[in-house]
């Protein structure tokens, strides 16, 4: 296990996954899926609902073992995972939710709180540190869940449709916010989504999945200029990429 010589921050080779179904043949979900993500790259994995995106992230996060294939993570070998459901703990305040990862890593509560304190401003949650999740709006909950993921201080972030449950307006706001924030931090991100606009506005590369059983059918470099802003949506290049992905997904002829 030599991690220093790794060229990629995250590398998945030939992932295969089946799920047993009682009384029927197993459900074939992943079919030899390859994924390579460079250090500091924002990779979007684009696929229709039910294609196996969450299955893939569960494997990348080390929560499930693939039927076959391998995952390698560079650096310290650790990732921060944000599940599809926000899974904020209702009995913890926003602040105590945010320090969960640090606490698990053995950081004392007080030190952990000091460490995450500057993030609240940045995530638009200043003043809500001591609120319970039940007191937040949907968009705030998503940001809180993202904050918790980021606060773990891991080099690679795995995000499972982080904005899936939001209205279009809030979602676009959060896209622009994440585009700006992640550029500042230089995070390596794997984001799973079925939203083409989300993939194009945020990502450096888009990996298109086939319907189940999933493999990567297209890999598209998004060479839109950085920083991505509201103006990016108006670029002809943006429309071209969007259309190209629609074709790749098989939605257009």
């Amino acid at each position: 296990m030599t991690s220093t010589t790794l060229e990629y921050a995250l590398e998945a080779d030939g992932l295969v996954q089946h799920f047993a179904r009682p009384g029927r043949e197993p459900l074939h979900v992943l079919d030899g899926l390859d994924l390579r993500v460079r250090e500091g790259e924002f990779a979007a994995v684009l696929g229709p609902s039910g294609s196996g995106k969450s299955t893939l992230l569960n494997i990348l996060a080390g929560l499930d073992r693939p039927g076959s294939g391998a995952v390698r993570v560079g650096g310290s070998g650790s990732v921060a995972y944000m599940p599809q459901k926000d899974l904020l703990f209702p009995w913890r305040t926003v602040e105590d939710n945010a320090i969960l990862g640090l606490e698990v890593a053995g950081v004392k509560k007080k030190a952990a709180r000091e460490q995450v304190a500057p993030l609240f401003e940045e995530f638009g949650l200043a003043g809500f540190e001591h609120s319970y999740p039940a007191q937040l709006s949907g968009g705030m909950r998503q940001r809180a869940a993202l904050l918790r993921t980021v606060a773990m201080n891991r080099p690679v972030l795995l995000l499972d449709e982080p904005f899936g449950a939001l209205d279009a307006l809030t979602r676009t706001q959060l896209h622009l916010w994440l585009a700006e924030t992640r550029q500042r931090h230089g995070w390596t991100i794997v984001l799973v989504t079925h939203d083409i606009r989300e993939a194009v506005i945020l990502a450096d590369s888009v990996h298109v999945l086939s319907p189940r059983p999933a493999r990567v059918t297209h890999r598209l470099e998004i060479d839109l200029p950085l920083p991505r802003t509201a103006d990016t949506f108006a670029l002809p290049e943006f429309a071209r990429l969007e259309r190209e992905l629609l074709v790749a997904l098989g939605t257009l002829g």
């Binding site: 599940p83 969960l100 698990v104």
Partner: peptide, 14 residues
């Protein structure tokens, strides 16, 4: 207890 919350915690190394 919420199984997914437990999984999240395990993904953090708990």
């Amino acid at each position: 207890a919420d199984g997914e919350a437990s999984r999240l915690l395990r993904s953090m190394g708990a």
